[in-house]
Design a binder for these strands. Structure first.
Lengths: 136, 136
DNA sequence: ATTTGCCCTGTAGCCGGGTACGGTGTTTAT
DNA sequence: ATAAACACCGTACCCGGCTACAGGGCAAAT
């Protein structure tokens, strides 16, 4: 079991962030020691790291909450989870596709810069970016 | 040429957002009509769409500014562009890899939900998320 | 045993990224 | 020729996501 400070350090966030996530319902309220200290299981580290990664990929905390809520229980039928899971899958796939277009644009830019840059060319990025944007 | 309102509509942002991006230096100051109205070339639409897509992938406006500044000119040598471009490439690749791990976790979750959910199983998401987090 | 450090619960403030508003000038449609 | 729709500028405000106190209690090290 971990104190909030140990958890924060492991997950590379501030202590206040952990408490903030708890208030937001992104992590469950942990058990307390007799004196009232929060006491976290080791898996909390995984969860917080997941939240930070998903954020870095452009998911909002509200969306992350939905991702974390993908579980079958009293309120979620397996069918409902399947439906919402597939929707999340679609948004993940769209992000991957857009990143791959961005990647190709940067690679193209760098290679042209290599060839033409030596010749005093211009290497404009916008040109390389044609069609990179995500579809709505 | 487009008015700011037309540009905003095409790019699916608010007029104020376009002016905000101009203040931030993310889009160049456009030429003005005699009466002072901004007059945009069609390619501005591409640029704003790119900005919105990059944001949706977790890039901050500051990072996007750097991406857009990947061009060889008086202040940027081709070598410098190559160096910064490769750094951006690395961050793009990391995002792709993390999204692919997330994707696999969701797919796994859905398939298990299919098999075990029908049997009254639990489908916990955290378990599927082991190791999804981005590396630092 | 007391200092140092970490924990608690508030509430308030900050930063990034817009968004809204007020007052005014310009185009365009009727 | 006048109303509606849009543009200008400036400033102020809002929301998401933290971050920083303040004022107090507990725990580990010297």
């Amino acid at each position: 079991m971990l104190t909030i400070g140990q958890l924060a350090k492991e997950a590379d966030v501030h202590v206040e962030t952990v408490r903030y996530y708890e208030r937001r319902g992104l992590i469950p309220e942990p058990p307390r020691t007799p004196s009232g200290y929060r006491s976290y299981p080791a898996e909390s580290v995984t969860r917080i790291r997941f939240i930070k990664s998903a954020q870095a990929l452009g998911f909002s905390l509200a969306e992350i909450e939905q991702l974390l809520a993908l579980r079958v229980d009293a309120t979620n039928s397996c069918a409902a989870v399947q439906r919402r899971g597939r929707a999340k899958l679609a948004s993940i796939d769209e992000k991957i596709a857009t990143l791959q277009r961005m990647r190709a644009a940067v690679v193209d830019l760098l290679s042209r810069c290599d060839r033409e840059g030596a010749l005093g060319g211009e290497c404009p990025f916008l040109e390389a970016l044609e069609g990179v944007a995500m579809e709505e």
